[in-house]
């Protein structure tokens, strides 16, 4: 269970997170939606301790991330996987080494085991025969899938997705969404997705939350969002220009 309590965060006098409260249920997929620049990525970075809140607490299984030291934090991070917006693959090493990277850093496996694991992880995301390619040689969708494979290779308890479908064509978006659903079923991880793709959210989410002006204004299942009374939620869901959201 991950709980964010009264999180406030400002960058150079601009308040990004304003008393944010949210909890993520174990082994469920939660999609946090919101407009670009509403602080979704900032929230995500708070969850893995890449950013520290100005005030408030981040609790991971009742452990406060701010109260532990760096070494303990790194131990904790081994239970996380994260898929960055552009994949964040290491562009100086090939796909195989990218996926094998967490294995090599944290587990002392024989080279044969590493190869076996990497090949199966890439197969899981529907890729094969690209192990020796460099990240720059792949398309955006492939890179994202490699990133998913890398995030899942240590079989983490929690996987965070930073805008997994952004910048992809609808078909590839669907592929990624299906990949998330299938891998979640397979690995039973807690999924946290931030996205502005409402259709994808309906499809993948067990719970949807909406972040607006640094706080959660609505949280519930897909049905609740489809029938929400909140004018902000309505405007976002329908994708209309007219409404209370200041453009």
């Amino acid at each position: 269970m991950i709980i964010l309590e009264n999180i406030n965060k400002s960058f150079k006098n601009v308040k990004v997170l304003n008393n944010l409260n949210i909890s993520f249920e174990d082994k469920k997929i939660t999609v946090v939606i919101g407009r670009s620049g509403e602080g979704k990525s900032v929230m995500l970075k708070h969850i893995v301790g890449l950013l520290k809140p100005d005030s408030g607490r981040v609790l991971f299984n009742d452990i406060d991330l701010n109260s532990i030291n760096k070494k303990e934090l790194n131990e904790l991070r081994k239970k996380f996987g994260m898929v960055f917006q552009d994949g964040a693959l290491f562009d100086s090493i090939n796909i195989f080494e990218n996926v094998a990277f967490p294995l090599r850093q944290h587990l002392k496996l024989s080279e044969g085991d590493v190869v076996k694991k990497v090949i199966s992880a890439l197969n899981d995301v529907g890729l094969s025969g690209i192990e020796s390619k460099m990240p720059a040689e792949l398309s955006g969708g492939m890179r994202k899938r490699v990133a998913v494979a890398r995030a899942l290779i240590l079989e983490p308890e929690t996987v965070l997705f930073d805008e997994p479908t952004t910048g992809l064509d609808p078909i590839m978006s669907d592929v990624i969404n299906n990949l998330i659903i299938s891998t979640q079923k397979h690995f039973k991880y807690t999924g946290i997705i931030i996205s502005h793709d409402i259709e994808g959210a309906y499809k993948t989410a067990d719970t949807i939350a909406m972040l607006y002006e640094g706080a959660i204004i609505e949280k519930g299942d897909a049905e609740k969002f489809k029938t929400s009374d909140n004018p902000v939620v309505r405007q976002f869901v329908t994708g209309s220009m007219i409404g209370p959201i200041v453009i």
Binding site: N74, F80, D86
Partner: peptide, 18 residues
């Protein structure tokens, strides 16, 4: 610098690599 702006440094950290 490139690793930093393309979030590779963040990725490293999330993968528990200092």
């Amino acid at each position: 610098g490139t690793m930093k702006i393309s979030e590779q440094v963040d990725a490293l950290e999330v993968m528990a690599v200092d």
